[in-house]
Each structure stands twice: as structure tokens, then as C-alpha cells.
Design a protein around this nucleic acid. Structure first.
Lengths: 211, 211
DNA sequence: CGAAAAATCACCTTTTTAGGTGATTTTTCA
DNA sequence: TGAAAAATCACCTAAAAAGGTGATTTTTCG
């Protein structure tokens, strides 16, 4: 039994050529192609494909909105994003929503074909630039703390601060006076170039600064 | 000029066969192979390869410890992990330390060769099961915000709060009065079960709550 | 040893938040 | 249409945080 596929892609030419390419492979079969995701839920519910190829930028409704809907029907349905966009928002919105792959159109449809294979084998096909961005979210510069020249004590204070603790509580945790704790915080704020604790927490957690 | 490579791999047979395979390609050249990372810093500093192939489980010292050292010398040196391990700890420790790729030995050395190509083209080669695990870290239940029952406006306020903004500034951004903004914050704190802005920021960013 | 860095503490003022109470207007949706 | 939910605003008090200044003790390290 061939692997079944549904395509959401508003460019008709592209959609048709994908369909031909995939159907001619012998291993895959396109069940249907749609130019928008307005009725994605019912369409997927009826067709129950193994894989969905999903464009993001389509009329009226973003393809991303269809991801949770499809995954709700059956999480085993693989969703491969196929789009021209490579901005962080779209990438991470898609992945967070549950996409299993993200392939850029600027690469050839042939690579999309490879991606179908990979996703069915339990992989997560990503175009190289996308994979790079994904990995980058994990990378933590080992020098980030050094760059800010925080002292060991300041790091201790900051660790407690980013848990949302009050100055009073941090002071008691470290067995120092309230004023000492404040003194450290003042220095921390200066070194991190922020003006208050909230900014410091946001900066540390957003930039994934290791403490 | 061929792409230069250094291999850290304690299995001599494997190391030698990799070396032969890579050298015979014409495009790549193995500068050296080592059976441990005890002197990785100096070795890399002297050899300055384009790519490092790094095993994790090696005598005395884990290959992961070498990652920050190498990246400190030159972040442009690509590091591809080549190991049998696929447990989450090793994977994410490696990626967080700065690895650019993670290839399992159970796949053929041929795939490692492909990975070298990919990493030099700015990609992030990952074995399928690894890629799957990496993507899984992004998947979030779409109901996280719903769980807290935040209203659309409250989400807007919270989005600005987690940037570290002051109440006054948030109010001006949303064109509402200071008291209105405070009113929203009070409700947000109640719903998130926190007592202040700092805790709210910490909770949202730590728990990766989608807004 | 001795200087530099780090850690400690105190006191002061001003600003910002938190928490409480209550009320009006707007929007949403059954 | 009409009730419920959401959004808006005001006023008050107390607590917490920020910012400044200055000083002493302890640690670190050449």
C-alpha cells in the first residue's frame, strides 16, 4: 500500500507538479490537493492521509492554523511544512504547533520528496538553514557570563532572582543582609545593562545566559 | 584547498577507516586523529581544522567537554558528534555546548560523510531519530494558555511584561491608563498563581508558555 | 606580603509595584 | 436582545524595588 499524501498549496502549478512528481514515484500517492486550509479539518478527517504537505502563506488563513487541527485528528499524521519563508517566527510557530518537518521551496521539489521518505521513517526533515536555526536555540555561549564579568556571588544572586524571588528572600537564602543583596543587584543591573530586576530576568532567560 | 578535518574517536579501527574514507573523497582531508580529548585544546589550536568529528564516550574525558574549548578557539570550526548514544542527556548536553551536528554510528559512515558536506554548507546534520527528539522539545500543547484562561488583552499585557517593561510603559504601548494596565496585571497574577511581575516573567519563560 | 577585587553592610530618597475596592463602558455570544 | 465576560478607569495604602553614597571586612592572587 503506497503512502498517502494530501497537499495544501495555493500555487496551482506547483501543486500539480508536486502531485505528478509524487504519484510517479510509485511509493507515494496523492489523495488530494487543496489551495487553502479553510476546510482542512473535515478534509483530513475524511481522507486520513499518512503525510500532509503544508504551505504556510495561503489565502485567508495561514497554514500554521491547520497544524493543531490535523494533529488533533491523529498525531501520527506527519506534517511537512513546504514554504518560501525562513523567518524565525514562522519556523518556530510551525514547530511549536506540531510540524514534523520544514522544507524550503528554494530547495528543489526533489528534496521535498526525500523529506517525505525521512518523515515516514520517523525523522524530522529540515532544510539546512532551518536546522541551523533550530540548533542555534540550544547553543549557549560559554562566555556569556564571562562577558558580563559577573562575580561568583553575583551569579548566585542572579540565579535566585530569575526564579522570581524577592530581594528579601534572596538575602535570607544567602544569609546576608537586605542591603548587601541590593548592593549585588545594583552591580548586576549595571553589568547586564538593565534597569531593574524584571529586565534582568527577561534578559537572562531570553538570551539563555548560563549561570 | 580541501576541507580539513580532525577526528576524536577511541576506536582505532573505526578511526582509521573513517580517515581512509574521508581522504579518498578528494574534497576532504584528515589532518589528524586522536583517541581522547585530553589535549584537544592545544591540538585544535595548532591544527585549526574546518571540521571536528567528535565521539562522546572516550577514555577519561567525555568528548562533550571538548566542545566549548574548540568553540572558544574558533566558533567557525564545525563540530559533528559521531556516537552510538542517543539518550536525551548526551544529545542536549552536546547541542547546548555548541555542537553543529549529531550523527549516530548505527547509521553508516557514508552518512557521516554526507553530514560533513551539510555542516560545511551551513546546515545542521542530525540523524533522523535525533532530529525527531530535537523537534519534540518545541512541541507544546496548544492549550497551555487556555489552561490559565488568559483573555486576549491579558496575553498582550503579559507579552510586554516578559520583555521586562514597566507598567507605565506597557500602558502607553497599549494606549490605556496606568490603572487599567495594573488591573490586567492583577488578574494575570491571580490566573498564573504568582504574586508579582518577576514571578510571572520567570514562570512564563521557564515553562515556555506560549503567548 | 600587599594591592586589587569581592563581599559585606548602612542610610537615605524616590519610584515602582502590589493589593484592595468599586465602578463604568464595551464586546461577545447564546 | 440581554446576560456574561472583557476591558476600561480611579483612588487608596503599604510594600518592594531602584538609585545614590560611602564604608568596612574578606578573599584572592601576583
Amino acid at each position: 500500500m503506497p503512502i498517502s499524501i494530501v497537499i495544501f498549496e495555493d500555487n496551482e502549478n506547483l501543486r500539480d507538479s508536486l502531485e505528478v512528481l509524487i504519484n510517479n514515484s510509485g511509493e507515494y500517492q496523492v489523495l488530494a490537493g487543496f489551495s487553502n486550509v479553510l476546510n482542512a479539518k473535515e478534509q483530513i478527517e475524511n481522507l486520513r492521509p499518512d503525510v500532509v504537505i503544508l504551505d504556510i502563506d495561503m489565502p485567508v488563513k495561514s497554514g500554521i492554523t491547520a497544524i493543531p487541527q490535523i494533529k488533533e485528528i491523529d498525531p501520527k499524521i506527519s506534517i511537512v511544512i513546504y514554504t518560501q519563508f525562513e523567518d524565525d517566527d514562522k519556523i518556530f510557530d510551525s514547530l511549536c504547533a506540531g510540524a514534523d518537518g520544514y522544507i524550503l521551496k528554494k530547495t528543489s521539489p526533489i528534496l521535498l520528496f526525500q523529506a517525505l521518505k525521512e518523515v515516514r521513517e520517523g525523522g524530522a526533515p529540515l532544510s539546512p538553514t532551518i536546522a541551523k536555526k533550530v540548533l542555534a536555540t540550544f547553543h549557549k555561549s560559554p562566555n556569556q557570563v564571562l562577558r558580563y564579568n559577573l562575580t561568583p556571588r553575583e551569579i548566585e544572586v542572579l540565579k535566585l532572582l530569575i526564579k522570581g524571588y524577592s530581594i528579601k528572600y534572596i538575602a535570607s537564602e544567602l544569609f546576608v543582609s537586605y542591603d548587601t543583596c541590593k548592593s549585588h543587584l545594583k552591580n548586576i543591573y549595571t553589568k547586564l545593562h538593565v534597569n531593574c530586576g524584571k529586565e534582568a530576568i527577561a534578559k537572562v532567560l531570553e538570551e539563555r545566559i548560563i549561570l
